[in-house]
Design a protein around this nucleic acid. Structure first.
Length: 676
DNA sequence: GAGTTTGAAACT
DNA sequence: CAGTTTCAAACTC
């Protein structure tokens, strides 16, 4: 079976020889141990094993690869967990199925069993399994990282050698994918397991996580193939039968892990589109002229690989790219270098020339490559053929778009390439293009001129407003569009912010108070959802001292405010499209735009306020603030709070939401904090 | 593929 | 600062 799996997954008929048999004997030994284990006995007695197997037999690939579901982690685990006394997952299908069906068995667990005073043996065993699986997970990460760093043959432990020698990385990953397919397929209510804390669910999650990590890391690290994964775009499933499609769909969740890698720099809208159409890694090709979805035999690359590894971040992403963190920028530069394209990160004007020079040779080389590939094609940039190819590559219209400038010589922000800080290349259909390395001086001068007008002209238009390092890390994509905003906002009048005319919508972010759009219906977040920000702003505009006063009061009664904030957190999260701090933070962290904009309902930069000192700074906030506007007081100070030791006073009845808004807004004004 | 619509960018 | 023009992308037919 294992041999069969290797053969099928690679399609080369490779069969492990002696080492494989040796492993099989070890596996057989493990089977015996496992079958003797209490867990096995218990599970085996719970309920008949459903013929999950049958569902897998539909997909020969999956069927063949079943053994690797657990054997691979096991193998990887072996070097660190060599305790032979522990039962290990075997390649025995029945045993595997028992494990796989844990989720189902969990539902059938005898309540009395779970109600035992002390942890059941099952729980203990499951906990052991979970820890070992997680350990395996870590080992997978470590092993793949080692592969990435080219340390495969250096200082590798004997166990690791064993792992790598007995487990062909290629087939191993493919098998894992299929295994994960099995898990996915067997878990109709997988979402429940993400939340459940019971051992079986945790066990399930552990396996799934290990597989996913191994899958993504193995693919990325080992240069491996996404093509081996059912991650094919646009439903291009080789078998083409329904079962394969079903498996493919079931694996879509796993593909998302890979896809996220591909989409790190893609706009949220693009990401959303990917999610919607269910295609994975379907970003259009950027530099390859191959329109084929199949793998490129000569280069060994696949479309998906190209999509994922050669996707040019920043191309056309000036609208979409989130404000680059240092890490972002680093990766971006790396990517651009790898692809031979110029990419200018935000606030990179100082480095623009260096970037140009650094990428110039690469650009030339790339051009040569491109020209070589398209030697027979019409070189007229506006030729239909070229346009067609551009259309094909940028069919999605998201990440690979090229400009089509006719009059601006690609030297204005109208030009997407120029605006994105990249040179125009062959796929562009521009005419009289000056945005090329040979016109470097012109490009630099023009860019400088534009930046003199607007220093942020080349900065990402969509800025990430979350400070969470984990999100910045790039792997956590819990950062929803709601936590990003267009830096200046849109000005839509007719499109309702529902079309890509709208920069907010195009950037995959909701409209904000920065927008001056009319009839906003932005699916990512409507502007009017933030009208309460506006209300607060107007109030504070009329009574600027209020902010100072509030802040002082807030600072003195932090605990009360925090308590209030905690109380209202859930409410505020639902009330506001985005965390209220975000927009404010973003405004603080970004300079005002040089280009003057029409007045809008937004919080101006903090420095623009000329706050008078608060009417009276009182160390004890128990005293009433008697200088509050009467409409805010409502017979009682709206900010009348108790000392930290006392219970706070209820908010006024007249404007019950105002105090909440104010208190929530306070942390966004750190510059107003009383000087230490 | 041509024409129209749209809104950002640029200009006055 | 506001209004207008230019422009190219997005969209429609």
């Amino acid at each position: 079976m294992m041999e069969e799996g290797c053969k099928n997954s690679r399609g080369e008929g490779e069969i492990m020889e002696t080492p494989e048999r040796s492993k099989n004997s070890r596996i057989a030994s493990s089977i015996a141990k496992f079958e003797d284990s209490p867990v096995f006995n218990f599970l085996n007695n719970l309920s008949p094993i459903k013929p999950v197997y049958i569902s897998q037999t539909i997909n020969p690939l999956s069927f063949a690869s079943l053994p690797s579901v657990f054997t691979s982690p096991q193998l990887l685990r072996r070097h660190s967990l060599s305790d032979p006394s522990k039962p290990e997952f075997s390649s025995d299908p029945s045993t595997r199925l028992v494990s796989i069906n844990l989720d189902e068995q969990r539902e059938n667990l005898d309540p009395n069993f779970e109600n035992a005073g002390e942890p059941s043996r099952l729980d203990v065993e499951l906990a052991n399994y979970e820890s070992s699986i997680e350990k395996s997970n870590e080992d997978v990460l470590g092993t793949c990282s080692a592969l990435v760093e080219g340390q495969r043959s250096v200082n590798m432990s004997e166990a690791n050698v064993d792992v790598l020698s007995t487990t062909n990385v290629n087939s191993w990953q493919s098998l894992i994918n299929d295994a994960s397919n099995l898990l996915t397929f067997e878990s109709p209510n997988a979402e429940d397991y993400n939340k459940s804390v019971d051992p079986a669910s945790a066990f399930y999650r552990s396996i799934r996580n290990a597989i996913q990590n191994a899958q993504s890391l193995g693919a990325a690290a080992c240069g491996e193939p996404v093509e081996d994964m059912p991650c094919q775009p646009d439903g291009e499933i080789e078998n083409g039968d329904a079962s394969s499609k079903m498996d493919y769909e079931n694996l879509s969740g796993l593909c998302r892990g890979m896809r996220r890698r591909c989409l790190v720099y893609e706009m949220a809208g693009g990401r959303r589109k990917h999610m919607e159409d269910g295609s994975a890694c379907d970003s259009p090709l950027m530099l390859t002229t191959s329109g084929s979805a199949s793998s490129d035999k000569q280069t060994g690359r696949t479309k998906t690989e190209n999509d994922c590894s050669r996707l040019l971040p920043g191309i056309g992403l000036h609208l979409n790219a989130l404000a680059a963190t240092p890490k972002d920028l680093k990766i971006v530069n790396h990517e651009s270098s790898a692809s031979g394209r110029l990419l200018i990160g935000p606030s990179s004007s100082a480095n623009f020339r260096q970037d140009l020079l650094r990428n110039y040779s690469l650009e030339r080389a790339n051009d040569a490559l491109e020209n070589g590939r398209i030697a027979n094609e019409d070189i007229n940039p506006s030729s239909p053929k070229k346009r067609r190819r551009r259309s094909e590559q940028g069919g999605d219209g998201e990440s690979c778009k090229r400009c089509n400038c006719k009059k601006t010589k690609c030297l204005k922000l109208y030009c997407e390439c120029f605006a994105a800080g990249v040179y125009c290349v062959e796929p562009c259909a521009c005419i009289d293009c000056f945005n090329k390395p040979i016109h470097e001086d012109v490009v630099l001068a023009t860019r400088k001129q534009i930046e003199s007008r607007n220093p942020l002209a080349f900065a990402p238009k969509v800025i990430r407003t979350s400070d969470s390092p984990s999100e910045i890390g790039g792997d956590d994509f819990t950062n929803t569009p709601a936590s990003s905003r267009h830096k200046r906002g849109c000005n839509c009048k007719k499109s309702g912010c529902l079309k890509k005319y709208c920069e907010c919508y195009q950037g995959g972010v909701g409209c904000s108070i920065n927008c001056r759009c009319e009839g906003c219906k932005n699916a990512f977040g409507r502007k009017d959802s933030e009208h309460k920000h506006t209300l607060l702003f107007h109030i504070c505009s009329f009574f600027p001292w209020l902010i100072n006063l509030i802040f002082y009061t807030q600072g003195s009664c932090a605990s009360a405010a925090e308590h209030e904030h905690e109380e209202d957190e859930n409410d505020s999260r639902s009330m506001y499209n985005a965390p209220i701090h975000d927009d404010l933070d973003s405004q603080q962290s970004h300079q005002p735009f040089a280009k003057k904009r029409p007045p809008r309902a937004s919080f101006p930069p903090i420095g623009s306020y000329a706050f008078p000192p608060p009417p009276k700074l009182r160390p004890n906030c128990e005293e009433e603030v008697d200088e509050m506007p009467h409409f805010l007081v409502g017979g009682e100070s709206p900010i009348k709070t108790s000392s930290p030791n006392k219970k706070r006073v209820s908010p006024p009845q007249t404007l019950p939401g105002l105090r909440k808004l104010i208190l929530q807004s306070i942390p966004s004004f750190p510059s107003l904090a009383p000087s230490q």
